[in-house]
Design a protein around this nucleic acid. Structure first.
Lengths: 120, 120
DNA sequence: TATACACATGAACAATTGCTCATATGAAGG
DNA sequence: CCTTCATATGAGCAATTGTTCATGTGTATA
């Protein structure tokens, strides 16, 4: 079978038409779901998660994060660029140093929920 | 620079020792953070997100999900196996058909928070 | 037992991704 | 200017990942 769109086999889609209809109408738009998976993708890497937790308590400069996590400045900088592009962190320059911080409280909430799930 | 752990450069880690200490002690264990990123990784794929949203309203069989999302039965089955292994969904067999459902309300909460973030 | 159907799963391949390395940018001091 | 230091970034590579294809497993029915 190549694609199920054309011909359902099991018949349940016809038996439970009401359910399928309800699910379909309750489901967010394709675009929203893509944005959503892109958002979670950012949380789905241990380096980025650790960076975010670094910034959870306080703003920090790139070098400090790299030192704290035992990783190269370049690796951290690349990831911070990603996080900044997606508005999860904000940057503030002070002379040669750039301080990063969590952009808003949604990030905190999501991290909190995740922690709650894995530690229970 | 290979690793920052040995020699900090910017000096801020020494200037803001108190902050770094606070961040370090507030940070969950390495293991927890890895589990956490593994959890979010599952939400970080549009196919899996769409599957989860299918199950958000009701339990559904594999064939129906495949049909609804316009994807092959095999692709959906592989992803469902992943989600089941991580306890995000549960399975219930009824004859030849297997019905999948969201495992617990944490999944709903996380999905909800995510939607809230991307749609605001 | 033989067939049909729903689902599971291993192997393989293409696409994505995270890191390193080298180099560029931008700011402060000499 | 020229150098130094903190950070940014493009290219390339290795590892991971999502899908397809082929096949296996489990259940119901003839």
């Amino acid at each position: 079978m190549a694609h199920g769109k054309d011909a359902p086999q099991c018949g349940y889609i016809f038996v439970h038409t009401d359910i399928v209809d309800r699910v379909t109408s309750a489901m967010p738009s394709e675009e929203t779901l893509f944005d959503l998976s892109d958002l979670f993708k950012l949380f789905g890497d241990s380096t980025r998660i650790r960076i975010l937790y670094c910034l959870f308590a306080n703003e920090m400069c790139v070098c400090d994060i790299a030192t704290l996590l035992g990783m190269s400045q370049s690796a951290i900088s690349h990831q911070l660029a990603l996080l900044k592009r997606s508005k999860l962190v904000s940057a503030r320059r002070e002379g040669k140093t750039v301080f990063y911080a969590l952009a808003d409280d949604h990030v905190r909430t999501i991290l909190g929920q995740g922690i709650e799930h894995v530690t229970e």
